[in-house]
Simulated assay, not measured.
Amino acid sequence: MDTLLTYPMPFPIKVMGAKSDALVAAVAALAQQFDPSFDRASIRLRASRTGKYLGITLTITATSRTQLDGLYRALTSHPLVQVVL
């Protein structure tokens, strides 16, 4: 399968869910699982206007399509995560 991506590369992922420390911890743990070099300090948080939801942007070092697919599956199946972009 041909790809337009050149690995390894920095790859930003946006995750949204109800605002909680548990959401941030879970997303960081999954990122670390799929990218051992992931730096938790690079996480960017943005609360919704009402403060009920939290947007999390994390940037991993993508090394393959398989890695990205696995991380997306893990994130989207997590009960605290509502959206992954």
Rank of each mutant, 00 (worst) to 15 (best):
R40W: 04
P8N: 10
R44E: 13
L5C: 02
G70N: 05
T66L: 08
H78A: 00
Q33T: 15
A18K: 09
S20K: 08
D39T: 04
T76Q: 06
I13F: 04
S37L: 10
S64Q: 10
V15M: 08
L5V: 02
T66I: 11
L71C: 05
A47G: 11
A29K: 11
A26I: 02
I60M: 12
H78F: 02
T50C: 08
R44M: 08
A62D: 07
A29G: 11
S42C: 07
L68F: 01
L68S: 00
L58W: 00
A62M: 03
R40A: 15
K14H: 07
I56H: 03
Q67E: 05
K14D: 04
R73D: 11
Q67R: 12
F38G: 09
Q67G: 04
T6H: 12
D69R: 09
P8H: 06
L23W: 03
S20G: 09
F38V: 04
S37H: 05
L80F: 07
L71S: 06
R73T: 10
F34L: 03
Y7Q: 07
S64G: 14
D39K: 05
A41P: 01
M16L: 12
F11G: 05
L68Q: 03
L68G: 02
I13C: 10
D35P: 01
S77G: 12
A47N: 10
L23R: 02
D35K: 03
V24S: 08
R73A: 14
T59P: 03
V15Q: 07
A25L: 14
V83W: 05
T50V: 07
V81I: 10
Y72W: 06
P12R: 05
I13A: 03
L85S: 11
D35E: 02
M16T: 13
V83H: 06
A74H: 01
F11H: 15
P12L: 02
Q32I: 10
V81W: 09
R49A: 15
V24K: 13
V84N: 06
R65L: 13
M9H: 07
F38Y: 12
V27Q: 04
P36C: 05
A31P: 02
I56W: 06
K19D: 15
V83C: 03
R73Q: 13
V15T: 06
T3Q: 11
G17R: 01
S64T: 08
D21L: 06
G55R: 15
A25K: 11
L75F: 10
K19V: 12
Q82I: 09
